Simulated scan of single mutants.
Amino acid sequence: MHTKSEKIEKILIYTLLCFLLFLSIIPFWLMFVNATRSTEQIQQGISLIPSKYLKFNWDVLTGRGFNIWSGLKNSAIIAFSSTFLSIYFSAMAAYGLVAYEFKGRDTLFTIILVVMMIPAQLSMVGFYRFMLDLNLVDSFIPIIFGAISSPATIFFLRQYLLSSFQKELIEAARIDGEGEIGIFHKIMLPIMKPALATMGIFGIVGSWNNYLMPLTLLTSESKYTLPMLVQLLKADIYSTEYGGIYLGLSLSVFPLLVTYLFLSKYIIRGITLGGVKE
């Protein structure tokens, strides 16, 4: 039987959680609602009820050369390709740091931590110059393959392996004649599945919303990502159509919400196991 104080405490906790849920959802709802409102209505104030200007905003959006399908394709290519390469090679690096004992292992991990603390913007000028020398400017290649080096992903996956790694499985597989690459793919990757899904969500969201790096490297409008195309929606100061801008933002956010809904069940499990060492 629950005491009265326990019931009150539970009610307060659920009330707080509902309030936090409301704060998390309301910005997205307002964005979707504003995508159905006219510029005049948006300027008049906040509304939680959708309006009837969705078709008008869509015409405004497409009338300004906003190629939603091109931007969606470019963002998807960059986001999913870079995320796959990042989590795959990061998983391999994390597995090597945990499973193998070699000289300089701790030093190497320390270097990874130091690199993780350095803002990526500091190396952007040098990276752009390097890509210019390699004639890779205005290409997806440096954006995708540049994501392979992900110290934060390596750190998270290493922490996850420290809580779930069993050396006996590796030794048993070796006795059965399985090679090191086979052990990694057949045993370790399935074990790391929750952590890989968690970092996959973070990687896709970060890459999808990445604006600065594509803006620096991409010059052809046909290769622009969705965030770059949304930025182009700003017209002159006398005729800014905020409804069209909100519709463009909604279109750019919607794929992320769908991806999150499919993979969200792994987040709590992955973060919990990755952050605690038993």
Rank of each mutant, 00 (worst) to 15 (best):
M1G: 12
T3I: 01
K4W: 10
S5K: 11
K7W: 03
I8H: 04
I11N: 10
I11P: 01
I13V: 14
T15L: 11
T15I: 09
C18Y: 13
S24Y: 04
I26G: 02
F28M: 05
W29L: 14
L30A: 04
M31P: 02
F32K: 03
F32N: 08
N34E: 03
R37L: 11
S38Q: 02
I42W: 04
I42M: 05
S47V: 09
L48D: 00
I49L: 14
I49R: 05
P50S: 11
P50A: 15
S51A: 15
S51W: 09
F56Y: 04
N57K: 02
W58T: 00
L61D: 03
L61E: 01
L61N: 01
T62G: 00
R64D: 13
F66M: 02
S70R: 00
L72H: 02
L72C: 05
N74A: 01
S81Q: 02
S86Y: 01
S86A: 14
Y88E: 02
Y88H: 04
S90T: 13
G96Q: 06
A99W: 08
Y100R: 12
G104F: 10
D106K: 07
L108N: 11
L108V: 09
L108G: 12
F109G: 00
F109D: 01
T110V: 12
I111A: 14
I111E: 07
I111H: 11
V114A: 12
V114E: 03
M117I: 10
M117G: 03
A120L: 06
F127R: 14
F130T: 10
N135Q: 10
L136S: 05
I141E: 06
P142A: 06
I143W: 12
F145P: 00
A152K: 10
F156I: 07
F156P: 07
L161R: 10
K167F: 09
L169G: 02
L169K: 01
I170W: 11
E171P: 00
A172S: 15
G177H: 04
G177E: 05
G179C: 08
I183E: 08
H185S: 12
H185Y: 13
H185V: 08
K186C: 07
K186R: 14
I187W: 00
K193I: 11
A195M: 11
T198D: 10
I201S: 08
G203C: 12
G203K: 14
G203V: 11
G203L: 10
G206R: 14
S207M: 06
N209P: 05
N209G: 07
N210M: 10
L212M: 11
L212A: 10
L217Y: 11
T219P: 02
E221G: 09
K223S: 09
Y224C: 05
Y224S: 09
T225V: 00
T225A: 01
L226Y: 00
L226M: 04
P227R: 09
V230L: 14
Q231R: 14
Q231M: 13
L233S: 05
D236K: 12
D236P: 04
T240D: 00
E241A: 09
E241K: 12
Y246V: 01
Y246Q: 07
Y246E: 03
S250I: 01
S250W: 01
S252L: 06
S252Q: 03
P255L: 02
V258A: 04
V258G: 01
T259G: 08
T259V: 13
Y260F: 14
Y260W: 03
L261F: 11
L261G: 05
Y266T: 07
I267P: 00
I267V: 15
R269E: 15
G270K: 09
T272E: 13
T272V: 15
L273I: 15
V276Y: 04
K277Y: 04
